[in-house]
Amino acid sequence: MTGYIFDAPKVNAIPVIGMSARFPIHRIFCVGRNYAAHAAEMGNEVDRDAPWYFTKTPSAYVASGSTVPYPPGTQDFHYEMELAIAIGAPAFRASRDEAARTIFGYGCALDMTRRDLQQVGKDHRRPWDLGKDVENGAVFAALSQAEDLGALGPQRIHLEVNGETRQDATLAEMVWSVDEIVAHLSTYYHLRAGDVILTGTPAGVGPVVAGDRITGGIDGLEPIALTLSEPE
């Protein structure tokens, strides 16, 4: 007889517009410094040789529209508005054309970040996990299927805090395109359906506090929202 000694973790899954079935999250990859202006505001330069990545655990998922507590261990909690790529088919050592065909859909996402703890990691050459892999720190709006969005580039990507615009750019400002990212990442991993890739954030990141409401959007996609309540 087989079984588990406690209840297995639930499968976190993202809603899909026009479908009753949801998109189950396998892994969450995140591209670092994919907008030159954001890299500059953080005192960095873009590595134009190749994209690079960090990860978040699927258990960090929270749905758009949620209210979550301000997280522990930080005094500098930041928003980052991003385009999410949802992978719907296997990819390994894929060409750019092959990579493009594996994309199931796109969605709005927030990469919430304990910036002070991320900086500690940078200063001491330690992993960024405490800064980036934050409970309730991977926020996703409902996905749209790829064919519904069309060619990427001119779409506006923006974020507001309490109605005030903080980030405002276009997807054309990404250093690495979505097919380049998927193709490159597939040289290191056997990508599979359920993998999600956050593609980096434009300039304008900054702190939020308990009581703030974050909203954002990308033209053609379901908008995103998150409210922060008092710390636990």
Score class of each variant (00 low, 15 high):
A172E: 11
A210P: 04
L159A: 13
G163V: 10
I224P: 03
S144P: 04
L110N: 02
G206W: 02
P154T: 03
M81F: 09
A8L: 13
G200H: 13
W52C: 12
V182T: 13
I17Y: 06
M42I: 09
A193D: 12
T113H: 03
M1P: 08
P72C: 14
Q155V: 12
A13N: 01
T2M: 10
K132N: 05
A21N: 11
I85S: 10
A146D: 14
G18R: 05
V139M: 00
D195C: 09
T2G: 08
I103S: 05
T2F: 14
G204P: 11
R22W: 01
P202I: 00
S20N: 15
T227A: 14
D111Y: 01
Y61N: 01
I28D: 01
G220N: 02
A50Q: 13
M81L: 15
N12K: 03
V175N: 06
G137T: 00
G107E: 03
T170V: 04
E164V: 08
V196Q: 06
S59D: 15
Y4K: 13
F104M: 10
E180A: 15
A203R: 14
L83F: 08
R126N: 07
G43W: 09
D129H: 09
G137Q: 01
A37W: 02
H78M: 07
G163L: 11
T201D: 05
F140R: 07
F23D: 03
G43C: 10
N136F: 09
G194V: 04
A86F: 14
Q167F: 08
M1K: 10
R93F: 10
P231D: 04
S20W: 04
Q119E: 15
R93P: 05
V209G: 06
D195E: 11
E180M: 12
F77P: 08
G121R: 01
V209I: 07
A40G: 10
V208Y: 01
E232C: 09
